[in-house]
Structure formats: C-alpha cells, structure tokens
Simulated scan of single mutants.
Amino acid sequence: MDEVLSRREASEAVGDDGWRFLLGTLRTAVPTRSMAESAEVAARAVAVCGDDADAHLRADLRADRVVLSLQTLGLAAVTARDTSLAGSISAAVRDLGLHTLPVAGVQLLEIAIDALDIAAIRPFWKALLAYADEPGSDGPEDAIVDPAGEGPAIWFQRMDEPRPQRNRIHFDLCVPHDAAERRIAGAVAAGGHLVSDSRAPAFWILADAEGNEACVTTWQGRDPE
C-alpha cells in the first residue's frame, strides 16, 4: 500500500469520487451549510482514516466547505493507501447526504524562483520564511515547504544566463486537469494574455497587461507515455 503511484494512476483512481491529483496530493472539497456540519465532515473523515489519519489526512474547515487532502506525508507522494482512503472518505461523506467535489479550494499555489545558483539562494528563502525541506528531498536544489502546510511551496528553476529584463519570481497555480482551460480563459478575459502553450497540458504561460508572468499547471503531460 506504500507503493508510490504515477500521476496518471493516482488521478484515474480517484476521479470518479470527486478528488483531483495536484502536486503529489489528492484534494477535494465538501460544500457544507455551517461550521458544525463542516466539523462533522472532518470528524467522519478522521474516523474513516483511523490510525492512518495523522500520516495521510489534512483538513481545512470553513463555514461553507471542508477542503480535504490526502498524501503519504513521509514520502510527500500519493500511494495506493491514499487512493483507498479517498474512496472510503467519499462514501462516508455520501452517508451524510453530502458529496466530495472538485470545487473551491481544489487548487495549490507554488512560487517559482529563477536562479543561476540555486544552492546559494535556497538557504535564504528557507530561513526567511521558516520553511523546511520537502519530505523525501535529497538535494540542495529541491523545493521548500511550509511545515504547517499553509503557505505555498517554493521551487527553484535553474537559469542558463541572467535575465535582467524579465521577472524571475512567478506564480505556478496547479489546478484540476479538467479545469485548466476554463481558468486560462477567465484570466485572458480579465485582461491577460497567453504567452505560450508549447508545454501544455503540463503548463501554460500567461501574463498580465504589464507582462508579469504566471503559469497554470496540471499533472498531465509530464510523464512519458
């Protein structure tokens, strides 16, 4: 059950239950009508996970929704145990007359920093933000993460040469694979423009009216077929 799944395996295992694979996690939301109902949903999810709750489940409770995520935290990856738990949680939520859905909150934000010497700048950002190495990381250029699981992950992209006329910090927004085109269309309609789709569906590069760039990303297009 601790076998790490591929992106496609993880996505296909849970899609019918309303979960989406994002950045090494499974994520879903349960629309609710009160904080009390949200607490009931979270309690049911914890009960379903049993002894696995601490090592796999995270929950964010609001008065109108609960956002649930599953990951084998020690590996920072999705395993067969996570997909099994997702199905069990969805069934338990249905017993409450509610549903797990890929709606508000089912996205993850990363910040990408371009650098010529990643090892030289990574310690600064780690110390400044009080971040930690991502579980399972094994090198001085890997991503850093908020140990509380609240702030966005930060990853570092190597540059071949200086780019003084282009922004070197940009947002990467990972969205459900079936929501990407809708999100891009909304950003373009709001005054942005598409810079490049040459790497789609792994990522699209967009920019605002002044050229500040951001990427919309999905799990697709990253693995050899």
Rank of each mutant, 00 (worst) to 15 (best):
E225N: 11
A55Y: 03
L194A: 11
A77S: 12
E37D: 11
A10N: 09
T79Y: 02
A148M: 09
T217D: 03
L108M: 14
E40T: 13
T83Y: 08
R122L: 11
D51M: 00
S196W: 03
F171W: 03
L206N: 01
S88K: 15
S6D: 10
T218D: 14
R94G: 13
T218M: 12
A53L: 11
I154R: 00
R27T: 04
L22Q: 13
A189L: 09
G192I: 01
S69C: 15
R20L: 01
A153V: 04
A76Y: 15
L98A: 06
W19P: 07
A104S: 09
V67R: 15
P135R: 12
L85F: 12
T218A: 02
G136R: 14
R33V: 15
T100E: 08
G149A: 05
I154T: 02
F203K: 02
T217I: 14
S38T: 15
V188H: 05
H99F: 02
P135T: 13
P31C: 08
T32S: 03
A13E: 11
T32Y: 01
G136C: 07
V103W: 01
A119G: 15
G15H: 00
E213V: 00
A43G: 15
I89W: 04
D223P: 07
V41D: 05
E134V: 08
V14A: 10
L96T: 01
E161D: 08
E9T: 09
D117I: 02
E225P: 15
G192H: 05
H177V: 08
D60Q: 12
P147D: 04
V175D: 07
L101S: 14
M1S: 12
E12K: 13
L22Y: 11
P164L: 09
V14W: 08
T79F: 03
D197K: 08
D223S: 09
I111T: 13
P102Q: 06
